[in-house]
């Protein structure tokens, strides 16, 4: 089948098997390797993408389900910013990663959180990334990085 959807702001039409997993379509057929696969079971969150602005697991989504949807991957999060997304900047500054494999999924999950809750508490941030595993154990720094972005945004507004 031909699947047509919006990917990081651009229209994509691609011939694929309808049961191809979204993660394989993105990484192997479209070359967007920022989205990672780890468990393939929905337990780790590494493959998180935004579909119609909500976080979803691309390992448990089939190509046919993307038809007509708006998809944003880690490559597209800085579409509207000059350079990196503020969250990406903050992750770098705070040292919120060691190996970095979980980072794309973490950032996607946090973008979904900040869209619905621009001023989350530390616990609410914890809750939002509860579906994302970081085996280096960078969780505290990740929370610091998100809190910094939230603080900066509020300061800029006032």
């Amino acid at each position: 089948m031909i699947v047509s959807f919006e990917l990081n702001g651009k229209e994509v039409h691609i011939e694929t098997a309808p049961d191809r997993r979204a993660i394989d379509l993105l990484r192997e057929d479209l070359g967007l390797t920022g989205t990672k696969e780890s468990c393939g079971n929905g337990d780790c969150g590494a493959c998180s993408i935004l579909v119609d602005d909500k976080v979803r697991l691309s390992c448990l989504t089939l190509a046919a389900q993307l038809q007509g949807r708006k998809v944003v991957t880690i490559e597209g999060v800085c579409m509207e910013t000059d350079g990196l997304h503020p969250l990406q900047e903050s992750f770098v500054e705070s040292g919120a990663l060691q190996c970095g494999y979980c980072t794309p999924g973490m950032i996607i999950a946090i973008i979904d959180l900040l869209n619905s809750n621009p001023n989350p508490s530390r616990n609410e941030i914890r809750e939002a990334i509860s579906g994302n595993l970081c085996r280096c154990g960078a969780y505290q720094k990740i929370l610091d990085a998100v809190e910094k972005v939230v603080r900066d945004r509020i300061e800029r507004k006032s």
Binding site: G45, V55, R56, L60, A109, L113, S130, G131
Partner: peptide, 9 residues
């Protein structure tokens, strides 16, 4: 139940 992405799906 599950996690945020699981609850979205």
């Amino acid at each position: 139940l599950g996690s945020p992405p699981i609850r979205n799906m």
